[in-house]
Write a protein that binds this DNA or RNA. Structure first.
Lengths: 164, 164
DNA sequence: CGACACATGTAACACGTTACATGATTTG
DNA sequence: CAAATCATGTAACGTGTTACATGTGTCG
């Protein structure tokens, strides 16, 4: 979006923006770029010093659509925790309760970890993007862990109420 | 797990257990079954009336591991909402705020929808598994939507505080 | 008899991901 | 000079998913 970039630049940029939480195999950048090129979404400017990729008109439109895209209901993504608990319930109340307890324990530990990351010691006044990114990612994961924990409690209550 | 099953039975079983929220292309069941067989996790019992699949010892072990598996931190799944907001922030405060607002609106609508599904009119005393499944799925999605909304608020606050 | 559920599969594709190979340039 | 960073790619694999083809049995 911000003008022609090397594949390598995109990789480092991605990692910087996400605060280093997610790493990217460089190879994947190039395969993806190839596929985008195949689909006419990016064009390549081959110069003496490597290649530079930029968006085509069509690619810009696609990206615009992505920015505006919002989650639609229809068919929510299949989620492992959901499925696991659902199947456990079908398998019987005891199994369900065991699974719920185990997941709760793990999620609680994870939550603490995320909270620690969130307020990790960093020099005050450090307004770097990556610090913000790290915090936001930690927050997101924490908030979701909390949500899952609440949901597990809800499941437990229902299972206990009308056993199976 | 509950003994030999036809591929078709697994499909209908899956859909029943998940309350019909997720449908499954039957073909996928057979390809998956083939792959599991290739990996020695299931065995096939070919009878006059079709085939029946069951777990091998190894498959049972694998399944046991799955039941006990809990989310580990290391590298959390790449999430579209997260990435979108992160990239938007990098793109500038105005863009970030626009994206956050748009997502919030959509998520709010989605949340209401899930809440409606949760207390959808069903005959009282209907203790069927599928009804419970439907409710639990709706709850899970609702709870997560709430989490994402909270997170969006958090992001907005931060963006407003130290613009970019 | 016709529609529908039961039952089994194949071919193909896309995408995410990894391992591996190669070379130039910069910097300690 | 050696190591790290910059830079570009290829081959391969696994899984999720879809479209398509085919046949039997059952029930209104």
């Amino acid at each position: 979006q911000d003008g022609p970039r090397h594949g390598y630049q995109l990789k480092t940029g991605f990692e910087a923006t996400t605060g280093g939480v997610w790493s990217l195999n460089v190879g994947q950048v190039y395969t993806t770029l190839d596929r985008l090129h195949r689909d006419g979404l990016v064009e390549v400017d081959e110069t003496t010093e490597g290649k530079r990729y930029s968006l085509t008109r069509s690619g810009r439109a696609e990206l615009g659509g992505w920015w505006e895209a919002v989650p639609v209901d229809e068919s929510p993504p299949r989620d492992e925790l959901l499925l696991k608990v659902l199947f456990a319930i079908e398998d019987g109340p005891e199994h369900a309760l065991a699974v719920i307890t185990r997941q709760r324990t793990a999620l609680t530990r994870l939550l603490q970890q995320h909270r620690r990351t969130g307020r990790a010691g960093r020099p005050t006044g450090d307004g770097s993007t990556s610090a913000m990114a790290t915090d936001l990612v930690a927050d997101a994961l924490a908030v979701r862990a909390e949500a899952d924990l609440r949901w597990l409690d809800l499941c437990e209550a229902r299972v206990l109420r009308d056993g199976r």
